[in-house]
Amino acid sequence: MASQGTKRSYEQMETDGERQNATEIRASVGKMIDGIGRFYIQMCTELKLSDYEGRLIQNSLTIERMVLSAFDERRNKYLEEHPSAGKDPKKTGGPIYKRVDRKWMRELVLYDKEEIRRIWRQANNGDDATAGLTHMMIWHSNLNDTTYQRTRALVRTGMDPRMCSLMQGSTLPRRSGAAGAAVKGVGTMVMELIRMIKRGINDRNFWRGENGRKTRSAYERMCNILKGKFQTAAQRAMMDQVRESRNPGNAEIEDLIFLARSALILRGSVAHKSCLPACVYGPAVASGYDFEKEGYSLVGIDPFKLLQNSQVYSLIRPNENPAHKSQLVWMACNSAAFEDLRVLSFIRGTKVSPRGKLSTRGVQIASNENMDAMESSTLELRSRYWAIRTRSGGNTNQQRASAGQISVQPAFSVQRNLPFDKPTIMAAFTGNTEGRTSDMRAEIIRMMEGAKPEEMSFQGRGVFELSDERAANPIVPSFDMSNEGSYFFGDNAEEYDN
Rank of each mutant, 00 (worst) to 15 (best):
R118C: 14
E469H: 07
A401K: 15
V242D: 09
G249P: 07
G450H: 10
F488A: 01
G249R: 10
Q231D: 00
S482G: 00
Y281Q: 11
E375T: 12
M371C: 15
G394M: 04
V299N: 14
P83I: 05
Y10F: 13
I475C: 06
D421C: 13
S376P: 13
G249A: 11
S310H: 10
K273D: 04
K198V: 08
S413G: 07
T6E: 00
N417H: 15
S478L: 14
E494C: 07
F39D: 01
S467Y: 03
V408S: 11
L61G: 06
Y148I: 13
R19G: 09
E53I: 08
G35N: 12
A451F: 14
I116E: 05
Q311E: 01
E192T: 05
V408L: 12
R65E: 10
R441N: 08
G435F: 07
I225V: 15
L358G: 04
R117D: 03
T147R: 05
G212I: 09
N76R: 03
S141Y: 08
D468C: 14
G460A: 15
Q12M: 07
R162C: 05
A286L: 12
R267P: 00
T433E: 11
A234D: 15
K273V: 04
I347M: 13
V100D: 02
Q405Y: 03
M456A: 14
E443S: 09
N124H: 14
N492G: 04
T350E: 00
I406R: 08
I445W: 04
L358Q: 05
V414S: 01
A411F: 02
D240E: 15
L133C: 05
Q364D: 00
T171N: 10
I406H: 09
T437V: 02
A179Q: 06
Q459E: 11
R261F: 08
N397T: 08
F479G: 05
M137G: 01
L315H: 07
Q231M: 15
P410H: 06
T430D: 00
Y148R: 01
G17D: 00
P277G: 08
C164Y: 01
V29G: 01
R400K: 15
R174L: 08
V183E: 10
T171Q: 10
D340K: 03
F464R: 00
M1C: 11
I36L: 11
D468V: 02
G362L: 01
A401Y: 01
F488Q: 02
N498E: 00
E339A: 06
Q42G: 13
N397L: 07
Q327Y: 03
F464W: 00
R261V: 04
K31N: 11
N205R: 00
S353E: 04
R213K: 10
L266M: 11
T23V: 10
M222G: 15
L172V: 07
M374P: 02
Q231L: 14
R175T: 06
R175Q: 01
M137L: 09
S262T: 08
S486H: 02
A129Y: 01
G356D: 09
T23I: 06
L358Y: 08
S287G: 10
L172D: 01
D128P: 09
I201D: 03
A428D: 00
S176R: 03
R65M: 09
K77F: 00
I194L: 13
Q308S: 03
E24L: 08
L307K: 06
V312G: 01
A260P: 05
R446C: 05
V186M: 13
I425G: 00
T15W: 02
E454Q: 14
V329K: 01
G295F: 09
R195N: 04
S141R: 02
E380C: 09
R267H: 05
Q398T: 01
E254G: 11
D88L: 01
L154K: 04
N483V: 00
K305I: 11
G431W: 06
A123I: 06
A401I: 01
A153M: 06
D128L: 14
G37F: 09
E14G: 01
K227F: 09
T134S: 15
G300R: 09
L379K: 01
R117Q: 15
A336Y: 03
F346S: 10
V414I: 14
S274Y: 10
L172M: 12
L154G: 01
M13F: 03
Y219Q: 06
N498L: 02
I257W: 05
V155E: 02
S359G: 02
K293S: 14
A472I: 00
R342N: 05
D16M: 12
M374K: 10
Q415T: 12
E369R: 03
K351E: 11
V476Q: 07
R26G: 09
A337C: 14
L110I: 15
N125R: 13
N417E: 09
I444D: 04
G282A: 15
S297Q: 03
R121N: 10
L193I: 12
T6P: 00
R382L: 07
P277W: 04
M43I: 10
I194S: 01
E192I: 09
Q308N: 14
G209I: 00
G132H: 06
Q122L: 13
D128S: 14
M163K: 02
R204M: 06
I119W: 08
A260E: 08
R162T: 02
R470Q: 03
E320N: 06
E465L: 00
N334C: 15
Q409P: 00
G5P: 11
A70L: 01
F488D: 01
M159G: 03
L264S: 06
L49V: 13
A129P: 02
V155R: 10
N142E: 07
A22Q: 04
F291T: 06
E114T: 04
G349H: 13
F464Y: 03
E80V: 13
A271F: 10
S60W: 10
S413E: 01
D128V: 11
V190R: 00
I445G: 08
N247R: 05
M331G: 04
V155G: 09
Q399R: 15
D340Q: 10
P410G: 04
S383A: 15
A387K: 04
P277E: 04
I201A: 13
E469D: 12
R204P: 01
A233K: 04
A237V: 00
V280L: 10
R446N: 10
D88F: 01
R204V: 04
N370H: 13
T396C: 08
E210V: 02
G404S: 15
G249V: 08
A442F: 00
R38L: 13
K351M: 05
E53F: 08
T92A: 11
F304D: 01
M222Q: 02
M136N: 03
I194W: 05
S269I: 10
Q235D: 07
G94S: 05
Y281H: 10
P173S: 12
R384S: 13
S407N: 13
S486Q: 01
V109G: 05
P277Q: 11
E292C: 14
K214V: 07
Y52R: 04
Q459D: 02
D255I: 08
T15Q: 05
G180E: 09
E220G: 14
A493P: 09
M167K: 05
V408N: 10
K357C: 11
Q149C: 06
D101W: 01
A233V: 07
V190A: 15
G268R: 01
R416M: 07
E454K: 12
E11L: 03
Q4G: 00
A85C: 10
W139A: 03
N395V: 02
S367R: 03
E254V: 10
T188P: 07
R389H: 00
L276K: 14
I365G: 05
A332Q: 07
I36C: 05
W386F: 12
N250H: 12
G490A: 08
Q58D: 09
Y78A: 06
M196R: 02
F291K: 13
S326T: 09
G180K: 10
F429C: 13
S60E: 01
N498W: 00
A271G: 15
S438P: 08
I253R: 02
Y219R: 04
E443M: 08
N395H: 15
K305R: 15
H82G: 00
I265A: 14
M43E: 11
L306K: 02
V109C: 15
C275S: 14
S28M: 03
N417F: 05
A278E: 02
A218R: 01
A366M: 08
K113M: 05
A366R: 02
S314V: 14
N417A: 01
D101T: 14
P95N: 08
S297L: 07
H82Y: 15
K98I: 06
S3I: 11
N319G: 13
R221K: 15
I316Y: 10
A2C: 00
T6Q: 00
S482R: 05
E192A: 03
K7D: 00
R213I: 02
E81D: 13
Q20L: 05
I36Y: 02
R204W: 10
R470I: 00
A403G: 04
Q231E: 08
Q308D: 02
A251D: 10
H324C: 01
L56S: 10
G185I: 03
M481A: 07
Q235L: 13
Q42H: 12
E220Y: 02
T360G: 05
R204Q: 10
E210I: 01
S413N: 11
K351I: 07
Y78K: 01
